[in-house]
Every structure is written in structure tokens, then in C-alpha cells.
Design a protein around this nucleic acid. Sequence first.
RNA 1: GCCCCCAUAGUCUAGCGGCCUAGGACGUCACCCUUUCAAGGUGAAGAUCGCGGGUUCGAAUCCCGCUGGGGGUACCA
Length: 513
Amino acid sequence: MADSMSSSMGESYLMVEITGPVRVRFAPSPTGFLHIGGVRTALFNWLFARHYGGQFILRIEDTDEKRFVQDAADDIMASMRWVGINWDEGPDKGGPHAPYVQSERKALGIYQRPADELVASGHAYKCFVTPEGEEAMRAAWAAKGERPERFRFRGPERDWTHAQVAEAEASGAPFTIRLKVPFDGATSFHDLVRGGDQITINNADLYDLVLLKTSGMPTYHLAHLVDDHIMGVTHVIRGEEWVPSAPYHIMLYQAFGWQMPTFAHVPNILRQDGKGKLSKRRDDVSTNRFWERGYLPEAMFNYLSLQGWSYDDKTEIMSREEIVERFTIDRVQASPARWNPDKLKDMNGIYIRSLPATDVADLLMPYMVKAGMIADPPQAKDRSYLEQMTPLIHERLEELQQAPELLAFFFQDTISYEPKLLIQKQMDAARSVDILRAAHAALNSIENWTISEIEEHLRALVESLGVKPGQLFGSIRVAVSGRTVAPPLFDTLAVLGRDRSLARIAAAAVSLE
RNA sequence: GCCCCCAUAGUCUAGCGGCCUAGGACGUCACCCUUUCAAGGUGAAGAUCGCGGGUUCGAAUCCCGCUGGGGGUACCA
């Protein structure tokens, strides 16, 4: 076995051109919500499958009994659907290789038999060392003066006779099945993301990996590989954190004599400060949080596609179809990307602006309801009122959740603010009262309360008062909205309505007296 | 510590030996537009292509070393 470990995949392996039908999978572990880094990896698999007209499989890898989180699989699937990633085979829709949940597959004995085969062929062995026993081995290693960090587990059972193994087994002692990794030689594999270059790791740096736990549950290493083989996965596209364990996988494929898939280890997304990869614990990156905050799935899809992949030297805004058409692995970067929420936000704004205002009003409604500004369920008049004010903030939105805050003054019976905000540059309280009164009179004389008439009257008033536009409009803005930064004034007045506009302006004048 | 991967402006990236006086985007700043804020337009600052050696007529692009960053080092994935 040792000799065959120095593997060579052959020239054909270097070919980036994809010829036959491709099958790829995304295989998350249900240990919590799906964060955007996971979505990105799923997305690359999906794009690869769609680009080449192949299949995309979703498989739940719940072989970690300790970290299993109820409902996590549902959240993962909901997150993927939201972004727009669908699957051809998966837990909820079945497929030719169902079930697609590993704990269910384990119950079917799917992993036990290959593990036994490996033991029978001498590529793996039953190991009776307990966790405590392993600790003792590490301690003994250190006691010999060796660096504890350099300890590489090798089970004493590697050299046991059949009789010894039989005896231990007969005693009922629990055991794991471990891969019998050669001490010498090296293991290599090619990686598409690194231009087909070879990655080589010395076998001496490896250890005897556990394939089957004492519980009978396979580890990721055995389970994913057996399933990939059974499910006919042609390309393994996964995060680069898997590079160091890839040699074990290579050994397993060789030990089984199975067709090797092509590997593509895609770069991680690093935290904003670059210190480590994104983690669901430390970073606010759960996919459903972005849905909550009002990110459009199209924007998220587009942004994520650019985390580690690019099309050319300038194109960034692309539709799903365009990305599918253009996505190839050779344009996937080997260096890690960095999480950049500002860029995502900017892109979300672009996507929001590209939508018709009526669509945006529909999207905004749930946020207004949640903020308590619009009744649940909304009435027809609420819908039309929201539709009137949506154009006022449409191009100012970067996240849909910003809408209630921006529109709050439309929904308040009385607004509160510091009266001194009414006083514009080079004005004083008395003069401000004067122009507010004048504005009240001018607006009161309007027959048709429309944007154009409001503008006409107020611009005429600027002339007759001899003030700067900003001085008059600024005072009125504060008077009706309570803020110095607000949507365009004439539109605001039009939507706010004659009565409320006049009342607020009158109240403002009083507050300064 | 050891192993593996990576390395172009604050950030994301284009570049795969001569088209680069290094292109685009986010962010920053200025100006224009303008009733505020945005959006939009124009422009600016910001990269001795991490450092040092090679190879070559010629290197951001190829090779080596160093440094830095990331990943891994589990009966977790």
C-alpha cells in the first residue's frame, strides 16, 4: 500500500475542460444556521452544476452526534432557497440515492460494509485505544522528550495478529476503525483552483485517521467519501479547510479502488479584519439575518458569486443567468476573500434601485407592519399610502429595514424635535417665525395640493421673501418632518397632505415664539 | 511547534513574459447637480505589484529563499 500512496493522477487530471456530465454536492453539517461562507461554497457548486448542465445534490452530514442542532437542516435549506440555490436531489425531495441524510444512511449499514472491507484488505484496522489511552500515549511521547505537538497517532493494533484482534473483540472492548496510514512516502493530488497544480503531503505528517467511531457512526472522512462514490459525484468543490485532510481521502479512494473525483478547494471568506475565517459564533453572518435586514436575494447571490470568483476586469453587476453562463472554476481565486459588508450594502442598494417602485412597496410592507406603522393585516389604503411614499425613499435605501425609520414622521400624530433646528443659517428665531407663517399662508392658498403647485407657490415665496431656497425649505422640512435630513420637500408635503402639513408648520411657528 | 495553501492600493479584484505610464469596484476626499440627504456625473488621493535573489533582450506575471497572512494538526465537520 505504501508504494501506491505516491499517487499520480495522470495527465487527464490536469484538463480543466469538463467533458462528461457533472455531479456535485453541497454537504453541510446541521450544527447551526448556515452562514454566508457556507452559502458561497454551496453557490459555487450550484453554479458549476448549472453551467455544465449537471446535477447539484444536497446532502446533510449529521455524523457528529454531539453538535447536532435540531432544525438546523431546515434553516440551511431555507437559506439556500432564499438565495436562489435549488437542488436536484436532497433530503426533502429524494432522488435515486435517497436517503440524503447520513444518519439515515448509517442506519442502513451503508458505511459499515466499506469500513469492514478496508479492515479485511489491510488498509484499515480495529483500534481499541480509548480516548484516555490516547492521552497516555501522548504523555509517554512527551516524556520521551518529543514535542507533544508532533505526536501523530499510530495504533499499536497495526501490527496485531488476527488472534490478538479476535481476543480483544471477544472481550467486548469498544473499538474504532482507523485508516492504516503508511509511515513513508507522500500523497499528492491535483486541485483545479490552483490551476491543476499538485499538492503533496508527506505521509509521516499524517496519522491513523478514525473512519468509524466506537458508536458505529462514520466520521466525515469515511461518510462523505462513500456517499460521493455511491452518488456518482464527479467534482468535489469544498472549502480550503479540507486541503490538509485530502490526502486521507486520496488514500481511501485508492484503497477502495474507486474512481477519483476532481478536487477544487475554494478559498475561505475571511473576517472583516482579516483575522481568521468567518465564524458563526463571532460574526453576524447568518444568512437569515440578511433576509431580515432587507437584502435582496439577487444582491446576495451576486455579491457572493464575487467572493473568490470574478468574470473579468470590470463586470460586477450580473444576473443569475449571466453568472451561470460565465462561471468557470479556472476563474476561482486561490487566495482568500475578505468579508466586506459595505460592498454588499452598496450592491443591495443598486438592486433595490433597479426595481420598480411598486415592487419596492411590496417588499417594504412587512417591515412597516413589523414596525407597527401599518396595521396587520394591511388595508388597501395602507398599501396605496405606502406606494405614494416609496418613491421618496426608494433610491435612498440600502437595506429594506431602513424604511420605517425614514418614513416614521408620516405615521406620527405629533412629531418632536428641537425648535432651534427650525432656524436656518443666517436666520434668527423671529425671522424664522415670519417665513414659517408666510409659508403657511402660501400653502393655504393652494387649490390643488399637488407637487407641482406646492413647488410653484414655495418658489414664488422664496422670491418675494428674498431668502435663499435652503433657508425657507430647510425650515419647512424640519417643521413637517422633525429632521434636517429627509426626503425631497415638495414630494413630502404632497404625500403628507394639506391638513397635516399646515398644522405642523403652524405648530413650528408657535414653538419658536 | 509541525504540515499545507496564499500574497496587486484600507478592502474585493483584473492581469496568466512585452498591449501596464498596473484596469475596474467598495470605501475616502473634492467638485458639479441641488431645498437637506441620497442617487447620478466628473475628478483626486491611495499599489516602489510583501521583501531579496535569480531566469530572460524583457517579469506583477516563471524559479528559489525570506517575511507576512490564512488553513490544518479531533472518535468536529
